[in-house]
Nucleic acid binder design. Structure first.
Lengths: 249, 249
DNA sequence: TGAAGGAACTTGTCTGAACAAGCCGCCCTT
DNA sequence: AAGGGCGGCTTGTTCAGACAAGTTCCTTCA
């Protein structure tokens, strides 16, 4: 039983993606849509707010809403799960576990994961491949309370996040992502088959469950050219921000 | 006359940032806040939705809202304007114009800017500095309809976007950003004082006005370590997405 | 002591109404 | 023919109420 406003949003999204409304075209008015779906104007506004946050449509007071793009955006889960994203894009994602062992948390890990000093974390190093091509090196510290679940997973597990959700009901709900560029270390270079010092796109992210409890702190290093991050925003919604780097601290 | 829901959001944001509610703490209930501000519950929900989209608070049906972080997020304008962002962060932003001339649009520029083939664009190359330190190389193609405005700006202009808004009423409203890593070319290397081939964080972005009409297509290259991009998201709102790169096309 | 049950609380969804603010096109004037 | 002004349309903001769905916590029972 999906909510009505979600259904309306899906209907509109389909129409936009299928080209029924071209880029730049004006959408029907809110009251129009309300009549069409037998909904109130408030419900329609929830639907269009959803599409606005996806960057699909724009609006100005007084004028009809317009279509900004006609490309699919993806879900939260696909940002946290390399495997889910790859599947959605039509790639074959595989991975090789290179390390999986417990050790004491570094000060940064303890801080990010809200763990006491000297708590144990589960340290996992994986090489990720798309269609057999090495694309990303992933270094994850799992919080102690999820470590047993991760340790129990088979070595050939394609998506740890998927498996945790299925087996233990541990689901990701919130995420924070830090994106920058770093030179490849010698390990990175060997694994990704690039020269040492060549550019890698780094995505560090903290994943939390619905209670706000941190699950994992991960550093992903993508081979240059393999992945681009994509953000849409507008006045009023600015999900992405710059942060100054250590260079200027 | 700011809207009531914006005022409520600002009040809550201040409380969170000041530490009145610790990270992980529960916020007052919606009806509680509605009483406190003499507002209806719907208005309070608009306020908390704003903070949720900023990644500041999280929610689950049935349970009280919780504080996820206590850091400031910045506005849309600061993402599009290097100068505005720098000012907000307390840095002195300067820039050097290295080129400013009209030329024919490349096929990609024509496509991004929704211009006909062989239309003219204004090509601007700038070196951006923070506190005198070279940090970013910016290559922008301005659409023909804004070119005269940009050409009229003084050479020492710190923020083109600010000046365009003031002088000609041309305001940025929507943005799309593509982020990846690239090796420094020889020009980049000389300007940013790094070695050729060393990692740069690249942000390409298209800026449009309220009608959805493209204003500029820009490629910014940040020196590694100088800037980190930061995104928060949760189930239901995923502003950031990965895109496959040319490597796999 | 521990577990099950239920009541009270809280967020999620939806309605219908009203007014404000801004945009657009038509008509009228010059 | 060009320009200005006005009225209708559309989005933005706010309200009060209702029910659904999920959480929390206390009480009661085994």
């Amino acid at each position: 039983m999906t909510a009505l406003y979600v259904e309306i949003a899906e209907g509109l999204r389909r129409s936009i993606l299928s080209g029924e409304y071209a880029v730049g075209a004006r959408l029907p008015s809110e009251s129009d849509l309300a009549d069409r779906w037998s909904a109130s104007r408030g419900t329609v506004r929830q639907a269009v707010a959803l599409l606005t946050s996806e960057g699909l449509i724009g609006s100005r007071q007084g004028a009809r809403r317009i279509v900004l793009r006609r490309e699919r955006r993806h879900s939260f889960a696909e940002l946290h799960s390399f495997a889910q994203w790859a599947r959605a894009m039509g790639y074959q994602a595989t991975s090789r576990f290179l390390r999986r062992e417990r050790r004491g948390a570094t000060p940064e890990e303890a801080r990010r994961l809200a763990l006491p000093e000297r708590a144990d974390v589960l340290d996992v190093l994986r090489l990720r491949l798309l269609d057999g091509e090495p694309v990303m090196v992933e270094r994850t510290a799992y919080a102690d309370w999820v470590a047993p679940t991760v340790e129990a997973l088979p070595v050939d597990c394609a998506s740890i996040m998927d498996s945790m959700a299925e087996d233990a009901g541990i689901v990701a709900h919130y995420g924070e992502h830090l994106i920058d560029a770093v030179p490849a270390g010698s390990d990175d270079a060997r694994l990704l088959r690039v020269r040492r010092g060549s550019p890698l796109l780094r995505q560090r992210h903290l994943t939390s469950n619905p209670d706000g409890r941190p699950i994992e702190w991960t550093e992903d290093r993508y081979r240059a050219g393999s992945v681009t991050f994509n953000v849409s925003n507008s006045v009023g919604t600015a999900p992405l921000v710059r942060d100054p780097g250590a260079l200027l601290m």
